[in-house]
């Protein structure tokens, strides 16, 4: 465990807790994209399939449970909670998740030189699910960014949520660089690319977020 990864995990944890707290306290999900939240639930579900089979550490298991629990409860609140669901603006949240999920699944099936199709085993299945969840995580924020562009108003909790989410992945990239030089541990080149794509997707948001913070004005995204 290095400081970049710990900071990344804490930032990630903070982002989901900020969102959950917002929805729970003000009983509103205005400006939040349900599609993005559902995609994140899928990301965690497909990445933590081995939560009961491969035990790493109490920290690892606890964080996995928290991420699974928080992402699914956010989806539950936005879909079924009688008060929260009324504030969900579905005709602003029109991004079709399948146009993100299908390419990620195809990419996950195509790019794993480790396996050929003849060895359809559980580890093949798990590996495909891991890579699928990595790619999906890189693009899962798109529906939310599209919705922010559309609604143009962005309350500061949602802004903080997106900012923390982007910051966590940037910290993870620093973690991969750190591990590459210190532990002779390297992640798959595909992981680098999906992590970079994910961080770059946030780049323009970061720019506007920083501008609004510097000029102390409300965050406005250009149309």
């Amino acid at each position: 465990m290095n400081i970049f990864r710990l900071a990344g995990d804490m930032t990630h944890l903070l982002s989901v807790l900020v969102l959950l707290l917002k929805i729970h306290t003000i009983k509103s999900c205005a400006g939040i994209s349900l599609k993005t939240q559902e995609l994140y639930a899928v990301v965690f579900a497909t990445r933590y399939l081995d939560i009961f089979t491969s035990y790493i550490s109490p920290y690892n298991t606890m964080m996995k449970l928290i991420f699974l629990g928080s992402s699914f409860s956010i989806v539950w609140y936005m879909r079924y909670h009688k008060i929260v669901r009324r504030s969900y603006d579905k005709d602003q949240d029109t991004f079709r998740p399948y146009i993100l999920m299908l390419p990620c699944l195809i990419l996950a099936l195509l790019i794993n030189e480790k396996f050929t199709f003849k060895e359809i085993s559980t580890s093949f299945f798990l590996f495909v699910m891991w890579t699928f969840s990595l790619y999906l995580e890189a693009v899962a924020i798109l529906p939310q960014l599209v919705m922010l562009q559309r609604t143009r108003n962005i309350d500061n909790l949602t802004g903080q949520y997106v900012f923390l989410l982007g910051a966590y992945r940037a910290l993870y990239i620093l973690n991969w660089i750190y591990r590459y030089f210190t532990e002779e541990h390297f992640v798959h080149w595909i992981t680098w690319i999906s992590g970079l794509v994910q961080t770059l997707l946030y780049a323009d948001f970061f720019y506007y977020y920083f501008q609004s913070w510097k000029n102390n004005v409300k965050l406005q995204l250009p149309a």
């Binding site: 990864r5 690892n60 590996f127 990595l134 541990h185 992640v187 798959h188 992981t191």
Partner: peptide, 10 residues
């Protein structure tokens, strides 16, 4: 089984 994202990473 090496994971695409470090085996001990979230």
């Amino acid at each position: 089984q090496e994971q695409p994202q470090g085996h001990d990473e979230l």
